[in-house]
């Protein structure tokens, strides 16, 4: 059976339907259970980081190599002659894409991946465009939730920390709204979820509520998605005052549901205490590892039309 994502671009999570998302998650699950080390044999994938991002780059390049493909590219725009010579992104993409079978890119400006996709016929995968989208992070988050809960439907999910600037939480909330989840938002007032996301959720009929601390809701959750409250957004006194409401330690998990998993896009600083690592609820390191499977799934679907998911 042909797959609907063959030769498609992955630019924004909003471009993907529920069916597309489910296909990607099933493919990630299949590849995790049954590796396909020959699937991308003789395929060359461009990995172009116009802005450095160590974790995303290593995860993506691992995904290519685990499927038997090879990688060309660069790890930061400053190291290339493209930036120094002032070439447009459009021209860079035309040239590099002519060498490769797929184009994975990170760029500091919003809209860069969408623009790139208009200057090449090969699939473009957005690895982060400025403050806009980071769909492969969302896909690995969805895969991790699906893996730990066996479903994405009607889950109770709390987002904690910087909900204003965190594109990760925006995209994940948008994607999960296709699955009728209940959301709990826990953030300092200055870093609350933006109104346009709340309006979107309201328009879609999604239940959400805003809370002052993790403890108010933690016992009824299936997923606790932590993010970092950046110290530099507050003055020192204010930071010391607010931070305790947004920090997690093992004692707070005493009465939670057995299936609760704590996730975090990493890196963490002090918002998850080390003692949480030893609880059965910690899942952030497995989540990071799942980035490889989610990205493998995308590559498999974009580059092989006949790929069969084995569930």
């Amino acid at each position: 059976m042909n797959n609907p994502l063959y030769q498609k671009n992955i630019i924004s999570i909003a471009d993907l339907s529920r069916t597309d998302l489910e296909l990607i998650l099933q493919t990630a699950h299949s590849l995790k259970q049954k590796p396909q080390p020959e699937l991308l044999k003789n395929k060359v994938v461009a990995s172009c980081f116009f802005e450095a991002s160590t974790r995303t780059r290593l995860s993506f390049e691992t995904a290519v190599q685990r499927l038997g493909g090879s990688v060309i590219g660069f790890d930061s725009g400053g190291n290339t002659s493209l930036a120094q010579k002032g070439e447009t992104l459009a021209d860079s993409v035309k040239v590099i894409a002519s060498y490769a079978d797929a184009f994975f890119m990170r760029h500091p400006q919003e809209g860069a991946a969408r623009l790139a996709s208009e200057f090449t016929e090969i699939p473009v995968i957005n690895g982060g465009d400025g403050a806009n989208q980071h769909p492969t992070q969302t896909l690995l988050d969805l895969f991790t939730i699906y893996e730990t809960q066996d479903t994405l439907d009607s889950l109770n999910i709390a987002f904690v920390g910087d909900l204003k600037y965190g594109r990760t939480v925006h995209s994940l909330a948008q994607a999960l709204s296709l699955f009728n989840c209940n959301f709990f938002f826990i953030a300092p007032d200055a870093l609350a979820m933006p109104d346009y996301i709340l309006e979107e959720l309201t328009d879609k009929g999604i239940n959400y509520s805003v809370h002052a601390s993790i403890e108010e809701v933690v016992d009824s959750l299936d997923i606790l998605y932590m993010t970092r409250v950046q110290k530099e957004r507050f003055d020192e006194t204010e930071y010391q005052h607010i931070k305790s409401a947004f920090l997690l330690n093992a004692q707070m998990l005493t009465n939670v549901r057995d299936n609760l998993k704590v996730l975090h896009p990493l890196p963490r600083i002090d918002e998850i205490h080390n003692n949480v690592d030893d609880t059965p609820h910690a899942y952030y390191f497995q989540q990071a590892q799942n980035g490889v499977y989610a990205r493998q799934a995308l590559l498999a679907l974009l580059l092989t039309n006949q790929f069969q998911v084995e569930v």
Binding site: L89, P108, D129
Partner: peptide
């Protein structure tokens, strides 16, 4: 209006 939008610097 977004000064960091890629459309400002490219042939589109």
């Amino acid at each position: 209006p977004n000064s960091n939008c890629i459309s400002h610097n490219e042939p589109v």
